[in-house]
Every structure is written in C-alpha cells, then in structure tokens.
C-alpha cells in the first residue's frame, strides 16, 4: 500500500501529527474563506450557496467513513480478529454522526431555499433511509450477546446494508426529478459551474472533514482498547 494510505488507516499507532495539523489548518481556512469569500449570485440560492462548503462535505465524509466500515467488515469476515470489528463499528458510529450533521445542515438550507426543512425530496428521503439502515445495524449489534456472533452478524449486515444503501442515495434521486442541486440527471455541481472558485474551498473542506472523521475514529478506537485492557486486568 502507498505510504500516504498507510498514514490514513489508523492502526495501533496514533494518527500522524502532521495530518492533524493539516486538518485543523484546512478547517480554519474553509470556515474563513467559506464565510467571507465571494460567491456567485444565483436565483433563489443567493447566499445559501455557501451550504456547499458545510453540508456536502458531511455526506462525502459519511460515505467515505461507511466505506471504511465496510472495508473492515470484509476484513473481519476474512480474518476474524476483534480489532477489525472494533474499527468497523467505530467507523459506522462516526459515519452516522456525520450523516446526522449532514441532515441537520441540509434541513437548515432547505428551510431557506425550499421553504420548509423537510420537503420530501427523493434525496432527502434516501438519506434518511440510509441513516435508518445504520441505526438498524446498531440495534442488531445491541441485541446479540455473544461477542463473536455480534461481530460476525454485524459484519454481514454491514456489507449487505451498504450495498442496499447505494441504490438509495446514488441512483434513485437521479432517476426522478429532484430539486436537490446536482440531482435529476447529471451528478456534479451544475448549479455552481458558473464559478470554479468555489472548488478552491469545497475540495479542501471535503478533505479536512474526512481527516477529522479519521481522527475521531482513531481516538475512539484507542479509548476502547484501553478500556478492554482495563477489563482484562
């Protein structure tokens, strides 16, 4: 594996300090530039176009974190080490937190552009269902007592649920007419193509939030391991 990818995957070690610094610096830049820089004037959207910097990275972060969760679920099934299970569930936890934040920021945005926080848009419904899938995953884990069984069945449901989630948030909103920007036909940032300056803030935002997600996962995994060591003693 590439060295940079190895830095991103939290292992026994602490997350690399330079990655944490990059994440914090980028986030400071994103918040300052996102609130202060000029944005294109668009009908209806107006200033709410800035939600792109804060709302969309949450969903990117959620999907990336869920992907990591599935990656560790697959690794667990291939090689049942309890570490892989810990990673898998922690990624799912943090991914769900990102999803809830994405939902809240999206509802805030929808309140000003669509007129109500919940508009029944296909993308909104799909995202809500995707969150339900992962909440069901936590319920499943909670109702199994045997640790090894919980890890194995959790991993199976995790993989299955992720595959069932893809059609929900990536395909269905594109088949129907959706009011969500970037949906209804072509993906991407059609509405924002007028101004590529927005990309200068948007892509760093995605990277920074993903790094923050990895950082949280790293801390949570280390806390969990310390607790386990405490129990064993």
């Amino acid at each position: 594996m590439l060295p940079i990818a190895r830095c991103l995957l939290p292992t026994e070690l602490k997350m690399k300090t330079w990655l944490k610094i990059v994440a914090v610096v980028l986030l400071v830049y994103v918040h300052a530039a996102g609130l202060l820089m000029d944005v294109p004037r668009l009908n209806i959207l107006n200033e709410t176009v800035r939600a792109l910097y804060f709302h969309v990275p949450m969903w990117f972060g959620m999907v990336l974190l869920y992907m990591m969760s599935v990656y560790y679920a697959i690794r667990y099934l291939r090689n049942p080490l309890s570490d892989f299970d810990t990673y898998s569930v922690t990624y799912a936890h943090v991914g769900t937190a990102f999803g809830v934040l994405g939902m809240i920021t999206g509802m805030l945005w929808a309140n000003y552009t669509w007129g109500s926080p919940w508009h029944g848009d296909p993308k909104q419904n799909g995202a809500a269902i995707a969150l339900l899938v992962y909440l069901a995953y936590f319920v499943l884990r909670g109702s199994l007592e045997n640790e090894e069984q919980r890890a194995r069945l959790g991993a199976v449901y995790n993989i299955f649920a992720f595959a069932a989630m893809i059609p929900l948030i990536f395909i269905i909103p594109r088949l129907t007419s959706s009011m969500h920007p970037g949906s209804g036909g072509n993906p991407g940032f059609n509405a924002y193509d007028l101004d590529s300056r927005m990309r200068l803030v948007f892509y760093p935002a995605v990277l920074a939030w993903f790094l923050i997600g990895l950082w949280i996962v790293n801390i949570r995994v280390r806390v969990k391991k310390l607790e386990e060591r405490e129990i064993q003693r």
Binding site: I129, L132, A136, L140, E145
Partner: peptide, 17 residues
C-alpha cells in the same frame, strides 16, 4: 434468527433494505 427478539429485529433490519 440468531438474536433474541427476532421478530422485532426482522422488521427493523428488513424495512430499510
């Protein structure tokens, strides 16, 4: 089937999917 409250769990797990 492996869990305790299987009937509730069946509904919770299957509806989103």
């Amino acid at each position: 089937a492996k869990a305790n409250n299987s009937n509730v769990l069946m509904a919770v797990l299957s509806f989103p999917v």
